[in-house]
Design a protein around this nucleic acid. Structure first.
Length: 194
DNA sequence: ACGCAGATTTTCT
DNA sequence: GAAAATCTGCGTT
């Protein structure tokens, strides 16, 4: 997959802006070897905007072993395990020691479809945060790694028009359920929910 | 179309 | 011991 990596400076901004800006960018995984490369265009994200956000894992500045990557530098991965079986991938935003991130919720598959198919066993391949992690081979081993180089990276893709971005409430949370911090591409059939 | 329970493990009370 | 940024399958309308 060619393309230049999205730089740390991009992530070092207000999380909501980073979330919108990530739509249309390309997530590339070389997990399992470059020959098994998988990639997809980001079509759905959610923002978790820091200690003031009741739905954020680091709400109230709860700095624990689990949330430590959220306090790391912008442009790194926060991969957490939940519900006993699922991994979810976030891009850490803002400044070091400020715990905020963007959850990647869905991709439009664009490379390595056969590998995704084999890992997943069924469709859909990348619609849903746990599904895309399975399709790209993302696990806790990637927690804290840079997203600018290495096994997991985000590279520049075709940016959507502002009018193509839809805003809505985040999915699957019980705290701050009415905060409008989910963003997705209006016409994409690959979002996790219409 | 909708609702609910189960899988399974880490984290915090 | 309960809850959790999920997903599936099985039940009922």
């Amino acid at each position: 997959m060619r393309g230049s990596a999205v730089q740390a400076k991009f992530y070092a901004r207000p999380t909501e802006a980073v979330a919108r800006g990530l739509l249309g960018q390309i997530l590339v995984s070389d997990v399992g070897g470059r020959r098994r490369q998988t990639a997809g265009r980001i079509v759905e994200v959610e923002a978790y905007i820091g200690p003031q956000d009741p739905a954020c894992h680091a709400y109230g500045h709860r700095r624990t072993a689990r949330t430590e990557p959220l306090y790391g530098p912008p442009g790194t991965a926060y991969v957490y395990f939940t519900y006993g079986m699922h991994w979810c991938l976030n891009a850490v935003t803002e400044l070091p020691d400020y715990p905020a991130a963007v959850l990647i919720r869905a991709l439009e598959p664009i490379a390595g479809l056969a590998t995704m198919q084999r890992r997943r066993g069924k469709e859909p391949l990348c619609s849903g945060p746990a599904r895309l992690c399975e399709a790209l081979g993302v696990t806790g081993k990637l927690n804290g790694v840079s997203l600018q180089h290495g096994l997991l990276r985000i590279v520049e893709g075709k940016k959507p028009k502002p009018g193509d971005i839809v805003t809505g409430p985040r999915i699957g949370i019980t705290q701050a359920a009415d905060w409008l911090l989910r963003f997705y591409l209006k016409d994409s059939p690959f979002v996790s929910r219409g």
